[in-house]
Design a protein around this nucleic acid. Structure first.
Lengths: 348, 348
DNA sequence: CTGAAAGCGCTTACAG
DNA sequence: CTGAAAGCGCTTACAG
């Protein structure tokens, strides 16, 4: 056994903190071999109760904490996972982040959070920066091409939230339920057609919503059209108001709440009542969507649970190499508030 | 030199990813010693240009990336810093996070973000979880007791944002400028007194704002009083509306924008006009404070820069052991919008 | 059940 | 300028 007694003195590298106790210090105090300390602390039960107690006492006395870097070097696992979201300022991600943090903390993982600012290029850069340091990655509403995502998932385990790529574990709530309710709601109010204000062209979730909406409109005998937008933000919503007015649409479903809110604002500013002239439905039920005037009708998503499941799935992949379970029962629901109203009166 | 050729085959631990190339692989390909690879890649210039090129080529060919854990084990530095904020959903933190990320990324650090949810207990737990893995900590608007913060800063370098503790580097914008402008603005509108709706009792920043406000009111010959609140949130703001009305205040400054917005909402709902009956001023100019009805008058803070400076200061402490520079020139400013109006008409 | 040794992938004095 | 060796703090076969 190397002589460790002068460790701190001989350490010439600048340690910002006072040298933390190591497993050797604990071993010395407990009068056992370092390997016994390691075993006592990591695989209790494989060691005699007496020894284990002695080691634990010593560790506690020294306030010992295993050095995660050293552990990681050996095990190849850092117990950190990367979470990539599109935009910090979009409240839709609050629950994604919280669900992930909760699930990770429960299993003693740390999550490293980064945002892509809705850019595939930023996203790729962020993932590359994270990759060496984390055990796995959660991509939420990724803007990356399928192929790129597959490449990344070859490097480290990776799971998807609100995105589907063949062969990659994906987690998302079933949107059909909420969309069916929204279409029914709008039809019952007398609307004859729905216009969908799309999200980013490379957004799988936006496509998915369009497809589902189209199908439900067809089934309900309603017209359906799609309007592309400039950005999935308040401004993107505002910018589309003109097109809605000239198009004469009476009911619009926006890709997300932020767009819906921006759209309402601009519609009202330009003299079109909401829901008097046009009804607006959002997506996600973000923090604050019940504070607008009028309060926003929207399709809510259990993002907290979706995200927690995704992290759980990823950790399962990591720890037990068990296949990630699908996000089974999670569904979206329509939350009716004040931004939707009669469509048969509005048209004339 | 140990035989590394069978490394991947002999590795029985489960590596989620295909074994990444190591410095030994690069050394073999370049025909040099591993230590030379290390030097070529980390301290260019100390090696002959020819050798360096050979090593770089080999590294590139193998797509080699240094294992940060191994590096960290030796250097004692993970190049990660922890950032603790109070609440993800409070837009005031967007800029804190972005400023920190930017500054960290520029210097090749990764930031690990956690929230305390406005609880000192959570905050302490979060910091403890982070401590072993990061090189230093940034505490934003910390709820921790001074003493606790000092304890933590003894373990790893730590800097503060929007909080001051003796002996710890602190970063914040000068609030006097913005407060002076707000007081002047309100006085010019004919108000005779200001009531301050305080933030959390253990918030240094809330105290600081109260003190400054009191001083400026005194100087302007205006009355001043403080109303404690239940929480620095929309709900906390709503809850205080009753007290404002019964107290007959005509001008209130809230600890933050969220409270100001909640307060406005409740005031209006209860029939008191804003700014007709009471004028409301917020703090921070958060994302969305110009979307309320009426649009919020508020004291803006250059949080992005404050936070970037804080991270820069922390990294300076880490890398160059240089003292963290103070957040010199950063000041707050009043942003006048629609939530403030005549006070001399309102009172009667 | 526990000790002694080897090894995880780097970096850094120490020689030459 | 570069090689050979030791060491960072753990964990895990391998013996006994």
């Amino acid at each position: 056994m190397p002589d460790r007694s002068d460790r701190s003195a001989s350490s010439s590298r600048s340690r910002a903190s006072k040298d933390a106790p190591t497993i050797y210090d604990v071993a010395a105090l407990a009068g056992v071999n370092p390997s016994t300390v390691s075993r006592a602390l990591t695989t209790p039960g494989r060691i005699s109760g007496k020894t284990e107690r002695r080691v634990r006492d010593a560790a506690e006395k020294l306030n010992y904490q295993a050095n995660p870097m050293a552990r990681a070097l050996h095990t190849g696992r850092s117990r950190m996972i990367g979470l990539v979201i599109a935009d910090f300022t979009n409240p839709v991600f609050f629950e994604v982040v919280r669900g992930a943090e909760k699930s990770a903390a429960d299993q003693d993982y740390v999550v490293v959070l980064v945002e892509s600012r809705e850019s595939a290029e930023n996203e790729l850069r962020a993932v590359r920066r994270l990759l060496p340091v984390v055990d796995g990655i959660v991509l939420s509403t990724s803007r990356l091409a399928d192929e790129r995502i597959r490449e990344l998932s070859a490097v480290k385990p990776l799971v998807l939230v609100n995105r589907v790529v063949d062969g990659i574990p994906a987690f998302y709530a079933d949107i059909d339920r909420g969309i069916a309710e929204a279409v029914e709601h709008l039809r019952d109010l007398g609307h004859r057609a729905i216009v969908y204000v799309a999200g980013p062209a490379d957004s799988w979730m936006s496509q998915r919503r369009a497809t589902s909406l189209a199908a439900h409109c067809a089934q309900a005998g309603m017209g359906f059209s799609v309007l592309p937008s400039s950005a999935p933000t308040l401004d993107g919503g505002r910018a589309i108001a003109g097109a809605i007015r000239t198009g004469g649409g009476t009911a619009v479903v926006a890709y997300n709440d932020l767009m819906a809110i921006g759209l309402m604002e601009e519609l009202i500013a330009s003299g079109a009542g909401v829901p008097g002239t046009v009804s607006v439905v959002g997506f996600d039920d973000i923090f604050g969507s019940d504070l607008t005037t009028p309060r926003l009708t929207t399709i809510s998503s259990p993002l907290h649970d979706v995200s927690a499941l995704a992290v759980g799935g990823l950790i399962g992949l990591l720890d037990k190499a068990e296949p990630a379970a699908p996000s089974a029962e999670l569904v979206t629901r329509l939350v009716v508030r004040e931004s939707t109203g009669r469509g048969d009166l509005a048209t004339d």
